[in-house]
Amino acid sequence: MIQVQNLKKSFGSLEVLKDISVNIKPQEVVVVIGPSGSGKSTFLRCINKLESFEEGHIYIDGVDIADKKTNINKVREDVGMVFQQFNLFPHKTVIENIMLSPMKVRKWSEEKARQKGMELLSKVGLGDKADVYPDSLSGGQKQRVAIARALAMEPKVMLFDEPTSALDPEMVGEVLGVMKQLAKEGMTMIVVTHEMGFAREVGDRVLFMDGGYIVEENKPKELFGNPQHERTKAFLSKIL
């Protein structure tokens, strides 16, 4: 589904990603953990090219997004993303947020987009919020709308960039619940998070990143129960 090969990325003279290679299979849920500054968010943002990168290749369904001839907009249609700060469009209602891209990019009829939107809103438990503006929603509700908005494009893979980090503690659960449900339905997911409980319970594989490398990767049980690398041990001892 996604192949990352020797990915390197710098911000000026600061090398953020030093050499990342990883394969992600269809329907796999990969959780990326690591200390701040380890490059995990940057790694995620390279996958849909919100960040450009200097070296390496990322193949999404066989299409190399490092290739200048690749139409990145086309690739992004199939790669949903959920942000830490939600990034809902404040000038549009909840349902308009969800319908916008299916209508403008996928060229769906308004009717079809609305139907899909309402379906997704009930799925994330917000069927009654279709016509309100994002401003009137709580953080947890906003993030669930953001997930529904990404899903409306019927993506093949979903990227989650610390989706619960900006939430009040009591709202984390409702967002993780939606993500769990999504994983159960077989969505391919890459999740950058600090929620170790989620990683353990939902993840098929956990990547531990530090200093621009993937230091260790394993099944959650193995990685949390029996970390091999010193840096993994040090990190886990601090957070668990």
Binding site: R76, N87, L88, L100
Partner: peptide, 23 residues
């Protein structure tokens, strides 16, 4: 306008022009 607005629009497959126009 917050940078995240453009990023969200682009991540949904919109072109730069579409993101400008609608978002």
């Amino acid at each position: 306008i917050d940078r995240g607005q453009m990023e969200a629009a682009r991540s949904l497959g919109m072109s730069h022009v579409q993101a400008m126009r609608y978002v």
